[in-house]
């Protein structure tokens, strides 16, 4: 996982509430057995005018000119500005894989769906919750200022605007630690192997029917 410390990146807007993970990456691309290569199909159904299929040459497909990410001014964006309940629906981790593969490092929204929010942290992608009025201000700033960039400082938990405004955000300490250091949390959990075994021994006496029956 790519470590995340401080990112200063171009901001692209996605001005729509309840963006679901089906919209972020449609199901036909979930047939892949890999973790990478989903970026060209990020937001496929609103990004292109035709129906996308795996294996197509995406560079030859007709782009939807009204879709924000297709506008030259947002090329190379690293921060996605979104609305409430971003990432709702399916648990597919292909959604953060696609966002990360496209080049996004952070998403700012007033709220996120729970499973999507969790999945982001496993993939070097930082979801940031900011209040509605702040998100509104940022949408206005992005619309009125071409090349609008934000600095995201994870260590200090701050979003800094070009004008010098600072917005603080919350993040769980363990997730922050893993993201800053690019750590795999499986290795960290396995440091608790003894506690897990102790639990299993006790629980197997209390509820033996739970153990050892799918063979």
């Amino acid at each position: 996982m790519k470590p995340f410390t401080t990112v200063t990146g171009l901001v692209a807007p996605m001005d729509r509430s309840n963006v679901d993970t089906d919209m972020i990456i449609p199901k036909q691309f979930l047939k892949s057995i890999k973790r990478s290569g989903f970026g060209p199909n990020l937001f496929d159904e609103v990004r292109y005018l035709d129906e996308g299929q795996p294996g197509m040459d995406n560079s030859k497909r007709p782009l939807n000119p009204d879709f924000e990410l297709n506008k030259p001014r947002y090329a190379g964006a690293q921060v996605l500005l979104a609305r409430k309940n971003f990432g709702c629906g399916s648990s597919r981790e292909h959604a953060p894989w696609a966002l990360e593969d496209y080049g996004f490092r952070a998403i700012i929204a007033p709220s996120f769906a729970d499973i999507f929010y969790n999945n982001c942290f496993k993939n070097g992608l930082l979801p940031i919750v900011l209040p509605d009025d702040v998100v509104d201000r940022l949408f206005n700033a992005v619309a009125s200022t071409e090349g609008y960039k934000l600095t995201i400082d994870l260590e200090n938990q701050q979003v800094v605007t070009p004008e010098g405004d600072v917005f603080e955000f919350e993040v769980n300490a363990f997730r922050k630690h893993c993201l800053i250091n690019g750590l795999d949390d499986i290795g960290l959990t396995l440091q608790n192997a003894d506690a897990i075994r102790t639990y299993e021994t006790r629980r197997e006496q209390e509820t033996p029917w739970v153990f050892g029956h799918i063979r």
């Binding site: 499986i186 959990t189 396995l190 897990i196």
Partner: peptide
Amino acid sequence: GIGTSEVEHVLATQC
């Protein structure tokens, strides 16, 4: 429901 990274986490640690 969980994501694929958590599927791997459960397979590896049962937690």
